[in-house]
Structure formats: C-alpha cells, structure tokens
Simulated assay, not measured.
Amino acid sequence: MTSYIAIDWGSTNLRAWYYRQGECCDERRSEAGVTRLNGRTPAEVFASVTDGWPVNELPVVMAGMVGSNAGWLSVPYLSCPVALNEIASRLTRVEDKAWIVPGLSVNRPDNQNVMRGEETQLLGAAQLAPGTYYVMPGTHCKWVRAEGGTIADFRTVLTGELHHILLKHSLIGAGLPTQRPDVQAFQAGLETGAADSSLLARLFEVRAAHVLGSRPRESVSDFLSGLLIGHEVALMAKEFMQSAAQPLTVIGGRSLAERYLSALKLVGLPAQWLDGDRAFRHGMRSIADELDH
C-alpha cells in the first residue's frame, strides 16, 4: 500500500495528510491559503506544514489553488472532455518538492469555465459513487457531467459567494441582527426560488419582507440561502442536466450538502451524498498509487 503526503491547498486554508502504508498517521491544518501567506513564500509555508515529515522520501501531491496563477506555480488546465485517468500522468513538478494536480477547463463559446481542486474530488467520486452528474456545493458551486470515466462538461454557479455579498455588502443585509437557523425560512426560500424564474425581482423582496414585518429579521440569511439554492437547482436541472434517469451525487460537507439535497428533492431529482473530504482523499490516493508504480 502506498505511502505519500497529500495537500489540499486552497485560497484561504491548507490541509495536509501523511499516509504510511495506506493509513493516515498525521494530519495538519493551516490558514495559510495562497491568499493568506502573510509575507511568506509558498515554499516556506510548505516547509512549515510538512516539518518532520519525510518529504524527500515520499511522493507529495498537492491540489487546489496552489496551482493557480495566484499560487506556487501556474499549472495548465486540462481541457474537457478529459478522461479522469489522465490526471495522474499530467502532474507538474514544483521546485523538486512536490507534484501539483492540474485543474480542468471548458472553453467553448457557450461555456467558459475552470476548476481547481474539485477534479481531485471527482477522481475519488468516480470510484466511490460512479454516476453521470455531480453537484459540488461551495462558494462557487460546480455542476459536472461525466461519461464513462470522462469529465464531459461542467458549469459554475456563484451561489455561495452571492449569498455572502448580498448579506454582508448590500442593502439586503444592512442593519440585521445576528442570524439564527430557521428551517422554515430556508424551506420557504427554496420553494420561492425553485418556482420563480425572476430571481432579480425577488431579491429586493428579501429586504422588504423583514422591513414590513412579514419575516423575522433573524431569519433573512436562511431565507436568502433557500432562495438562491432553490433557483440554482431548478435552473441547472433544466439547462444543464440532459437526463435525470440516474441519481446524481452531491459532493461536499454534510451541512451544505443537505441544503442541496433538499432542493434536489423539491424539484424531483434523486440524489446521494458523498463527503467531500473522503472524495478528495480517495482521489489523492489513486494519484499517489500511480506515482508509486
């Protein structure tokens, strides 16, 4: 069984795992994402987070924004459609210290998209939960279509980022008290967003509803979340998915994944959940296995 080091290096955080004979014997976390280096170089952060690990003896594989033009080294994207089994053979070496996984891209007149980090989750998901469609919630949610081990197409929806911007930097969230969980508000938002294509017109109503006293001011965040996710899922089910015959897989943390599972159920799409960390680590293991051969 392979011994290796895997690093998930994103914009704001970094996670690293040391595996010996297939078993994780140490795990480390850092807030030194590529946008939070605080004056240090990526090489210095790498040395700090792997201190004491046998980085000169084992394969070290990194994925995520570390391979972007804002990261350690700008690694070219692989253009879709692309076979997932090509990823392990298209790694880029950085300073004789580690390998960086390439991201994926789509560059067509009707769709221009990129991803970094999610491709490694997809590599793991293809083995743990093989299927045709994957939804990957997050700040920038990815909707992915696979065909027999090949990533055929994907799109990105900025639902998470839009929720944050509207709540923190727009009139919608101005002057609100601390928000509290509200399942009913979220569900109401889901139903509204999924049923109404006029999302732009609905957004101001999020503010008007609490100003007029018809919705608790503490529940605005959950209603807005439901509104955006409901609209996203209904739109993508119609515009992106060619068939709903097979269950799709939601890849991510449980809390956010459950919101998407609720939205998918509302629009009549069967779905299953796969933990994002599990998918990522499984994908990294498959890459490390290839390097070991």
Rank of each mutant, 00 (worst) to 15 (best):
I87L: 15
N113P: 01
D51A: 13
C80P: 04
E23A: 14
V45Q: 00
T35Q: 07
P109G: 09
R20Q: 15
L84H: 01
G71L: 08
W17D: 05
E27V: 15
D51Q: 13
C24D: 04
N69A: 15
K97N: 00
N69Y: 12
V114I: 15
A83S: 13
G39R: 13
V45L: 09
D110S: 12
G33V: 11
G10P: 13
L104S: 12
G64M: 05
V49N: 09
L37H: 02
Y18D: 02
D96T: 07
E119Y: 10
V94N: 00
L14M: 12
L78E: 08
I100P: 11
M65G: 11
L58S: 09
R20E: 15
W17A: 09
L58A: 10
L37G: 01
D26A: 15
P109E: 06
G117M: 06
L84M: 14
S48W: 01
E119I: 15
V114Y: 03
A43L: 07
E31N: 14
V49E: 01
R90L: 00
S11W: 07
S30K: 12
I87A: 10
R90F: 00
P109S: 08
R90S: 10
N13A: 05
V55S: 12
W17Y: 06
P81A: 09
A16G: 05
V101C: 03
R15N: 02
K97G: 06
M115Y: 02
V101H: 03
A32L: 05
E118R: 01
A98G: 05
R36I: 11
S105F: 08
G64N: 03
T12Y: 15
N85L: 14
S11C: 01
G71E: 04
R29E: 09
G71P: 04
L104K: 13
P81H: 10
V75Y: 06
I87M: 14
V60F: 01
R116W: 05
V114H: 01
G103Y: 14
I87W: 10
Y19P: 04
N69L: 15
T12W: 15
S105D: 02
G67Q: 12
V101G: 03
R20C: 12
N107A: 09
V45H: 02
Q121A: 12
R90G: 03
G39N: 05
A16D: 04
W99L: 11
C24K: 11
V106W: 11
L104V: 12
C80R: 02
N111G: 06
S30C: 03
G52P: 07
K97I: 06
E57A: 14
S74P: 00
L84I: 05
V94R: 00
A63Y: 00
V101I: 13
D110A: 14
E86Y: 05
E31K: 07
A70M: 12
V82Y: 02
G67V: 08
A98S: 05
S89G: 10
R29T: 13
R29G: 12
